[in-house]
Every structure is written in C-alpha cells, then in structure tokens.
C-alpha cells in the first residue's frame, strides 16, 4: 500500500474511526461472552456513525446511532436475555469449517482490495449540497414519497409479524 498520503484532517479522522470500527468488529469475533460481542459490535456501529459524519451524511449518522446502537443492538441484548446462552468455544470447535471460512473470506477480501486498487476512480464532478439533512427531507417527501411509504408499510408488517411470532405463549400440550 502506498503511503503518499497528505495528512489532512479528514484522513486522520477516517483513520482513527476505521481503526475503531475494525477493532470493534474483530473483538466481537474474539469475545467469548455473547453480551460482550454485542457491545463490541455496537462500538463498531458508533464508529461507522462517526465515519458517516466525516462523509457529510449527518442525518444518516444520526439515524445510524438511533437505529443500530439504540434499537438493533438493544433488541439483540434483549434477545440474549430472553434466551439461555453457552459461551463460544465451550463446544467442540469446527476446525474445517473455520479454516475454510477464513480462507474464503481472505480470498474474497483479496479480490475486493485488488479490484478497488485496480479500479480508476475519476475525481467527483461537483459536490454535495451544503445542508444534506434538508435535502434528504425534501427528497424523501417529494420524489421518494412512494418508496418511503412502502418502506414504512414494510416496517409495520415486519414489526407486527415479529410480535406475532415472539408473543405466542406456550399452548397447553
């Protein structure tokens, strides 16, 4: 990897946040307790939210924190609490599966990185509008109104379904 980088503020911020995200993800895979894993991933999600801010996507970053860190992770933790868990590694390992998975993932990563480095990205011909949140609002409620409504319907259905699935008490058997 070439290191002819101009150390702009953006890059420093990116670098720190990227390290945080990767560390969080890797730690999530290494922990043995499930709650630790979940929290570690929450850390990754927060780091990603930071990256979104760096990328001029304040609204998305806000939603990221709200949704992932606030909702999904908490939902998962509730799920963890409602079920009983054994710690990872207590059962017999599956060395073949893990080895093959590692090889496969590394190969995929290598291919992706190769593709990224090989690709030629022209400089952007313009820039994002200054106030992205306002623009998103305009767009969502004007041009994107129908997809927006559809997604809301989807979300409603999913939540009702989730309630129906999880709610069923033990029926007398």
């Amino acid at each position: 990897m070439s290191f002819n980088i101009d150390w702009t503020g953006e890059f420093i911020a990116f670098f720190a946040l990227a390290v945080c995200a990767i560390v969080g993800a890797v730690m999530a895979l290494n922990f043995t307790k499930v709650v630790h894993m979940a929290l570690s991933l929450a850390f990754t999600f927060v780091s990603l939210a930071g990256l979104y801010v760096v990328l001029d996507a304040e609204f998305v970053a806000f939603v990221q924190v709200l949704l992932y860190v606030g909702a999904v992770t908490i939902l998962m933790i509730f799920g963890i609490m409602m079920t009983k868990h054994q710690d990872e590694g207590q059962e017999a390992a599956r060395p073949l599966l893990e080895t093959l998975a590692a090889i496969g993932c590394l190969c995929l990563l290598a291919i992706l990185i190769f593709a990224i480095r090989d690709a030629d990205f022209p400089d952007p011909a313009g820039s994002l509008p200054a106030d992205t949140t306002r623009e998103i609002g305009k767009l969502l409620f004007a041009r994107m109104a129908i997809p927006f409504e559809l997604v809301s319907v989807l979300l409603t259905v999913a939540f009702i379904g989730a309630v129906a699935l999880a709610k069923r008490e033990e029926e007398p058997k």
Binding site: L97, C107, F114
Partner: peptide, 20 residues
C-alpha cells in the same frame, strides 16, 4: 445453514478467480 453459506462463498471466490 452455515455450511451452505460457506459453500456459496467458496463458489463465489472460485467464480471470481476464474473470471479475473
């Protein structure tokens, strides 16, 4: 499921390698 996913991954890698 995980075995299936692994198989799909390996297949994808082989396919990508073949095309590349």
């Amino acid at each position: 499921l995980q075995t299936y996913a692994l198989t799909a991954l390996i297949g994808l890698v082989i396919l990508a390698l073949a095309i590349a």
